[in-house]
């Protein structure tokens, strides 16, 4: 066995028995999910196997830490139609992330050192919700640059564009940071427009990568 294989084997830690409270919490979560599935099945009645399949998917997604609901996905099919224009942004910039363009009718809803939310004017949803928005952030400190998807050029370097659930994600390096731009599909930006938006993003020293 090589030294590397020995080190890998040493990563395995002995499994420790869970406490009673942990076991009960797992069972409670599982029962709640099963109850929710039963309730939705009853509500949808004889809608057929297709509906049951969709419900099962919804229940599973609802128990994942960050999964969108099936309704979110269904209502936001990917669009390449370019239904919206990008316009020059002339308003006040936020610390952390600055933009040169925004989709027409969108504003900088708010920002933290970790992300910038670009949302339709009048959107009063929490800054913590990214549904229906264009969001700029740095890749998490715990994750690596994901070079999968359609290759594009952003800031003169390689970027990668892919669809994940109800959003498209553009990941690129600006030479200093790995930047992630996520656009909810219902905004209607084309791939080229998403790249154009990213080319107008400037990450300042106030931006921070999240952890986890």
């Amino acid at each position: 066995m090589t030294d590397l294989e020995t080190r890998l084997r040493a990563l395995r830690v002995p499994a420790s028995a869970p406490g009673e409270d942990v076991v009960l919490a797992d069972v409670r979560r599982a029962r709640t999910a099963a109850g929710r599935r039963r309730a939705v099945r009853l509500a949808t009645g004889g809608a057929g196997l297709l509906a049951v399949g969709a419900v099962a998917t919804t229940v599973v997604l609802s128990n994942q830490p960050q999964g969108p609901t099936q309704a979110d996905i269904a209502s936001t099919a990917p669009s390449q139609s370019g239904r919206i224009d990008l316009v020059d942004y002339t308003g006040a910039q936020r610390e952390g992330f600055q933009v040169a363009k925004v989709p027409d009718g969108y504003v900088l809803q708010g920002a933290t050192p970790f992300s910038l939310d670009v949302a339709p004017a009048g959107d009063t949803s929490s800054l913590d919700s990214f549904v229906g928005k264009l969001v700029v952030m740095l890749q998490s400190q715990d994750a690596s640059f994901d070079k999968t998807g359609k290759a594009v050029t952003v800031h003169g370097s390689a970027g990668y564009l892919r669809t994940q659930d109800a959003a498209r994600i553009l990941e690129y390096s600006d030479g200093t940071h790995v930047v992630v731009v996520q656009a909810w599909n219902n905004i209607g930006l084309t791939d080229d427009q998403l790249v154009e938006f990213a080319n107008g993003v400037t990450v300042t020293s106030a931006a921070q990568a999240s952890v986890g």
Partner: peptide, 29 residues
């Protein structure tokens, strides 16, 4: 594979760690 739907995981520092034991080999991780 999942898109970010919310900023649940964006935080400056990691909150109290759950009781998950880890081997001590940060370089290999």
């Amino acid at each position: 594979r999942r898109a970010w739907v919310s900023r649940e995981r964006s935080m400056h520092s990691v909150p109290d760690a759950p009781a998950v034991e880890l081997a001590d080999d940060p370089e290999l991780f």
